[in-house]
Design a protein around this nucleic acid. Sequence first.
DNA 1: ATAAACTCTATTAACTTTATAGGAATTAGA
DNA 2: TCTAATTCCTATAAAGTTAATAGAGTTTAT
Lengths: 139, 139
Amino acid sequence: MISKKCKYAIKALLYLADHQEDDRSIFSSEIAEQELIPKKFLETILRELRNFQFVQSKRGKTGGYKLLKDPKEINLADLMRAVDGPIAMLPCVSLNYYANCEECDEKICQIKPVFEEVRDQTLKILNSTSIDSMRQERL
Amino acid sequence: MISKKCKYAIKALLYLADHQEDDRSIFSSEIAEQELIPKKFLETILRELRNFQFVQSKRGKTGGYKLLKDPKEINLADLMRAVDGPIAMLPCVSLNYYANCEECDEKICQIKPVFEEVRDQTLKILNSTSIDSMRQERL
DNA sequence: ATAAACTCTATTAACTTTATAGGAATTAGA
DNA sequence: TCTAATTCCTATAAAGTTAATAGAGTTTAT
């Protein structure tokens, strides 16, 4: 399961992509109201997204947020890693957050191979899914 | 990420499959020692696995556990669901633990489709992976 | 000045995970 | 029957994570 935080982050970026016209910034309060995300929680999420270079913020009365990258260039795997950490189902199988198993020998581990396969298939999808493609997608 | 509990459960079933000869039962203490799983924790896990009909237990001095099904018939998806609950990354996309999103309209949700795809690909692998196939697998 | 936005740190409440404790029930065998 | 060794069960604790909130500070346009 991804966290609510991560879901909120995706929604916020989608909202920005859906509503960005000209160069206007969008208030966190607008996103919070429209997407039913707790306002203060969303603020901290947007700050993180700014730190990770997904969005740009502007302070003051005419402040707000806008995307820092082309929605085509924001892929879901990167976003999820930034917000939630590892995507893999086992630490010993994570590409970006690898951690070894204390209690087993990875060379002969019978569990690892399946979860490597799951990881590969999952990443194949998430790496090729951008904020832009999520907007288009209507299966 | 799957929980440690789930990983221990998989290891325990693999151990039983790897070591069952004749009809002998295997002590939880043996599994705990060999697989470096906290003994008391493993006991509660094995009890759950018994309740879910994965293993059979026998009490008393010559007690222990053995598999209740053919290792070929124990698939990873069922096991993971029993121990950890939903496999899907979003409640609204789970086949066995569906829960609706309060804050969004699923009909027009831009997030859902990707995670349905991830779910499908993940289940394709987990459904076709059994305790037995994990033992064979040497890629 | 003021209003309204973002910024930041700290904290909290709830929940989940990962165990552990302590004993009860069961069984085989001396 | 007594003992030893196992599983069974309930409760609880300790640690970690998640989800959110509080409150004050900073910035900017008007």
